[in-house]
């Protein structure tokens, strides 16, 4: 990117980007290593503590099979689902922050997650008896998409500016929030508790089928978002600059929003309303590898997945026999951390 613009300093900019590349690759490699350690540790920890070596043996197929149930049926799908959801939320947040050009503009703040929650709670309280629970993810994604389309349409006034997008989103999310509460309040006790637990965000009781259903979304959409890397870098500089450089702003914005919404919707569908990941993961990613979108995508995905996985491991082990929803933990740790980040950025 930078060599296109700065022909005069060709060698120097090439050197800088080479340095950046090395740094980014080091970061990505380190994060993968940490994820692997977290993965093994997470599979070992729990009410039955396993030897990490046995876990590795099991994963490589050399195990004796005695921990088959604990690892393969209980912990592995839960771990994988947490990581996939976290990766999806991290990238969804990154893209959304780029589109609205504000570090606070993540899917959960501007109402996309609220739409998904509304649809899912509607499904859980009104339709769950007559329609198979398998359709819950579809309901959540449809909800996220519908609310996003509504936000975009309502923010449209000879084009869409990031400010209007955010403000309309916040207004709508207050509305979907109120409606969600209403459906929960006006229902019988059983579905209320279930819907509420879901809303809080939990990978409790994750099954392999959930993992297989979420995997294609993440595996497809995260690489797809890299296609927008160039326009994302330009869009960040502002509408005028972007238009001047020939980026078709509205078109690219819609494309990026679609990916972000689909990722957020899919993650919310399987893991419930886990907040703050889409807000924080991109922040940390930017601190680590700078502003180049191409590096930010994998780093945000890795950090997001580690956040949710770590939160879930701590939430299910620290308060045994209680199994606290991961979402509570993410926001309990994430929100103060986020405030700290904002405070820091002020002093730089």
């Amino acid at each position: 990117m930078s060599n296109d613009i700065q022909h005069k300093h060709f060698t120097r900019s090439e050197m800088v980007s080479e340095l950046l590349r090395k740094k980014a690759l080091t970061v990505i490699f380190t994060l993968i290593l940490l994820s692997a350690i977290l993965f093994i540790a997470g599979l070992s920890a729990g009410s039955t503590v396993l030897n990490p070596l046995d876990v590795v043996k099991h994963l490589t197929g050399a195990g004796s099979g005695e921990h088959n149930f604990v690892i393969h049926t209980l912990r592995l799908p839960r771990m994988l689902l947490a990581m996939l959801a976290g990766a999806a939320l991290g990238v969804a947040g990154l893209i959304m922050q780029g589109v609205v050009r504000n570090p606070l503009g993540s899917p959960d703040i501007i109402g996309v997650t609220g739409g998904a929650s509304f649809a899912a709670v509607f499904f859980l309280t009104r339709l769950a008896g007559s329609v198979s629970i398998k359709w819950l993810p579809i309901a959540a994604i449809v909800g996220a998409a519908a609310v996003s389309a509504l936000i975009y349409a309502l923010a449209w006034r000879k084009g869409v500016t990031p400010v209007r997008l955010v403000l309309v989103g916040i207004g709508l999310s207050a509305c979907t929030g109120a409606l969600t509460t209403m459906m929960i309040v006006l229902n019988d006790e059983y579905s209320t508790t279930r819907a509420y637990l879901w809303m809080t965000g939990s990978v409790y009781g994750a099954k392999w089928s959930d993992v297989y259903s979420l995997l294609p979304w993440v595996a497809l959409l995260v690489p797809l978002s890299l296609l927008f890397a160039k326009s994302a870098n330009v869009l960040e500089t502002g509408d005028e600059t972007a238009a001047g450089l020939g980026v078709r702003i509205q078109l690219h914005r819609i494309g990026m929003l679609t990916i972000s919404v689909a990722l957020a919707g899919a993650a919310v569908a399987f893991a419930g309303g886990i907040g703050f990941v889409g807000l924080i993961a991109p922040h940390i990613a930017r601190k680590l590898v700078g502003r180049a979108f191409g590096y930010l995508v994998p780093v945000s995905a890795l950090i997001g997945s580690m956040m949710v996985a770590l939160a879930d491991v701590v939430a299910r082990t620290a308060f045994l026999p209680l199994d606290i929803p991961a979402g509570v933990f993410v926001s309990g740790i994430g929100a103060p951390f986020f405030i700290y980040l904002l405070y820091r950025s002020r002093h730089q």
Binding site: N102, G105, I109, F276, I324, S331, G332, A335
Partner: peptide, 30 residues
């Protein structure tokens, strides 16, 4: 703009913390 976003973030924080408390103590939920 910053005020509205800060408000939304703080409100998201408190809402999820509230949900957390309510989920862990079910009898108070109803």
């Amino acid at each position: 703009m910053k005020f509205v976003l800060a408000g939304a973030a703080i409100s998201a924080l408190f809402v999820s913390l509230t949900q957390g408390v309510l989920v862990t103590s079910e009898q108070s939920l109803q």
